[in-house]
């Protein structure tokens, strides 16, 4: 049952660091985060790691396990062979603070730039009516636990530090799509998606979808539809002319017999 595993863990801070070797006990049923905790308790009490729920619900313990972004709490040791060396490094896209802990403030800054949900002004609390089928599209994206692994893996920022000012990564393009598909939202974010969040940088390689621990179809269900709606607006001649008269969704929603359940 139990065995001793070979671990390599990156240790250091913003001034530099490197891989350190550890031999550490592993018991049946354990996950990578258990092993990191065992290292803390027995060999490296000041090993820095972020975690919280240890049940795949909070998205705190993201790291790269053998080069792949993973939640450490959901990576079972039984997925490795006993003689395999397991290498744990911090998420590469974000600056290291210490050991496995990175500075993810980029994500919070981008979140703040997405125009918030805006319901119709005359709709009283308690009077919201939406059909299940209409809320389901946005509900898929609201499963996001903000582990930021999609933003970590996206090559538009992973390999291009300079894009961080203009590109918000899959997490926040998905947030825009989520608000866009909210049956009662009244704001048009298409221009913001292009100008402030750089939706054009995404070339649909679907790396984000592959790493999502919640199995959200980020590219297919969020980003591609968002791109399509932007393309509609930009290139559809009839829409362009019509938009000269009615510039936003609010105008369309204000029609007296339009139920709130449609957008």
């Amino acid at each position: 049952m139990g065995y001793t595993a070979k671990f390599k863990v990156w240790r250091g801070d913003d001034t530099g660091g490197g891989i350190e070797d550890f031999n550490v006990d592993v018991n049946e049923g354990e996950v990578v985060l258990d092993i990191i905790h065992r290292l803390q308790a027995t060999q490296a009490p000041d090993l820095a790691v972020r975690w919280n729920c240890k049940a795949g619900k909070c998205g705190s313990c993201s790291a790269e396990v053998n080069g792949k972004p993973r939640l450490m709490c959901m990576t079972r040791m039984s997925t490795f062979t006993e003689d395999e060396t397991i290498t744990i490094t911090p998420m590469r896209t974000f600056p290291v603070i210490r050991d496995l802990v990175t500075d993810v403030s980029y994500n919070y800054e981008k979140a703040r730039m997405v125009p918030a949900f805006a319901p119709p002004a005359d709709l009283a609390p308690g009077d919201y009516r939406m059909a299940q089928i209409d809320v389901e599209r946005s509900q898929e994206f609201r499963k996001c636990i903000e582990c930021f692994m999609c933003n970590n893996v996206c090559h538009a920022v992973r390999d291009h530090e300079e894009n961080k000012t203009t590109f918000s990564g899959p997490r926040f393009l998905m947030r825009i799509a989520e608000l866009d598909m909210h049956p009662l939202d009244t704001v048009d974010r298409r221009e913001v998606a292009v100008e402030d969040h750089g939706v054009g940088y995404c070339n649909i390689t679907k790396c984000c979808t592959e790493v999502c621990p919640e199995h959200i179809k980020i590219t297919d269900n969020a980003i591609i539809p968002l791109k399509e709606r932007i393309a509609d607006k930009k290139y559809d001649p009839i829409f362009s002319i019509a938009s000269l008269f009615k510039r936003n969704k609010q105008g369309r929603q204000a029609a007296p017999d339009t139920p709130h359940a449609t957008k």
Binding site: A116, F117, P119, P125, G126, Y128, R129, M130, A131, Q132, V135, S138, Q139, R142, L179, H182, D185, A261
Partner: peptide, 24 residues
């Protein structure tokens, strides 16, 4: 409690729905 829940919808919460579109 009911007022506090309805308020969340004005913040953008998306609860599961009943067939008539209310919060399930």
């Amino acid at each position: 409690a009911p007022t506090r829940v309805w308020e969340l919808e004005t913040y953008g919460a998306l609860f599961d729905r009943t067939p008539d579109g209310k919060i399930s």
